[in-house]
Design a protein around this nucleic acid. Structure first.
Lengths: 224, 224
DNA sequence: ACCTGAACACCGTTCAAGT
DNA sequence: ACCTGAACACCGTTCAAGT
């Protein structure tokens, strides 16, 4: 009886259900326990309701995750877009910031490979990247498709880290590559460790430069 | 009583549990009902046993899926590796074959972004791609990292199709891009539909050429 | 070693009913 | 419209026990 007001404070009776509130709660759960715990049921109990209530705001779990990702994308540093300097360096800086954000939540990156977000932060990022490609003189057609490639590689690079925490799966590939017989797989054997992810960030930034150079050099029509 | 022999035929009493047998059953379930049904429990009941039995052969569900993927990779056409002709065209042909295989099971492609297979078919594919890069004079260091990029893009391209069956999520992106205001997002607005996946295969092959050109043009050390 | 039944601790999604 | 309890139909993984 006496602690009624106290319990009200700890859990404010019932926060009204809003899309933003759900996303905020989801982001918190993800930060604390990983994307695997960001489930409809878990969130519902966090918000003092039943899972069915969340379906008013999200068609399914994948869309909930996409909304969480868009929320996170607010942390991407877009300041290089309007800064002075070489456009390639600035493009690389923005994508590196994007990758850094995703590196924090590799499982979210994995889901982003299929379920692209479509919120305002994502749109801002896309617009910024297109502005830089435009500044670099990349023809519109190549910019449109190249943008996709750039995000794909940046996202996949972060997603690859998802299995990385767990040495079991990761080392299965490593073990297989090391165990290869030089007679049957000479090139794998000779490249050895170099095939495995070396210094992650260096690879990512090399990959971005490869893409920039390639996009500039590859027209969308005609032979090669 | 009388149909004992008949039921024996339909379900041969009990096939001995082997890694290969499990993978074969898994591939069948996937073909028939999609990767979502390839679960430990479902497979166990398919094989007339309990789910715990499968953990003798696979550490977890992700590794089971990786094994199924490797199995599927047996269908990739590696004949262009030893064929005559321009190495770029042949490299593109192999990757196109790889993409085609994954396109059949986009959800498997999605899981492949994180859980790379490490079976013999995967190793054969990697060796073949490295042979072509070598033939093209790509320096070993660039080949090692470039290989990763090529597989990443090919895999992600197929994985993107995973959401594609479901117009809900897919159209969310489309709708968002179309609804954009030209005042705030001029470049998105001007590129319009071109940003969305046009003719999938054409994009994939352009992406591969971009990567080949980029890898050739981008040394692993030094400035840009 | 290989195999298993049973248990623990969860899931997504829908539906009929309420406000 | 928004919200919900309850139900349906599933999951992964571990453990103690058996062969």
């Amino acid at each position: 009886m006496m602690d009624e007001p106290r319990s009200r404070r700890e859990r404010p009776a019932k926060a009204a259900l809003t899309r933003g509130g759900i996303v905020a709660a989801a982001a918190e759960v993800m930060r604390a326990e990983g994307l695997g715990r960001v489930t409809m049921r878990r969130l519902a109990s966090e918000l003092d309701t039943g899972p069915a209530s969340l379906y008013v705001y999200f068609r399914n779990t994948a869309q909930l995750h996409a909304a969480v990702l868009d929320d996170l994308l607010g942390a991407v540093d877009l300041s290089p877009v309007d800064a002075p300097g070489d456009w390639r360096d600035r493009l690389e800086a923005v994508l590196t910031s994007y990758t850094r954000v995703l590196f924090e939540y590799p499982t979210l990156a994995q889901s982003a490979v299929t379920a692209r977000p479509s919120g305002e932060n994502y749109l801002r990022l896309v617009e910024g990247l297109l502005a830089l490609l435009d500044e670099g003189g990349v023809p519109p057609g190549q910019a449109a498709w190249g943008l996709d490639l750039l995000l794909q590689v940046a996202t996949a690079t972060a997603a690859e880290h998802a299995g990385g925490d767990d040495p079991e799966q990761w080392d299965a590939v490593g073990a297989a590559l090391r165990a290869v017989r030089p007679e049957t797989h000479p090139r794998i054997a000779s490249l050895g460790e170099d095939l495995l992810s070396g210094p992650g960030p260096a690879r990512a930034s090399w990959g971005i430069r490869v893409l920039i150079n390639g996009v500039l050099a590859t027209p969308r029509t005609g032979g090669n």
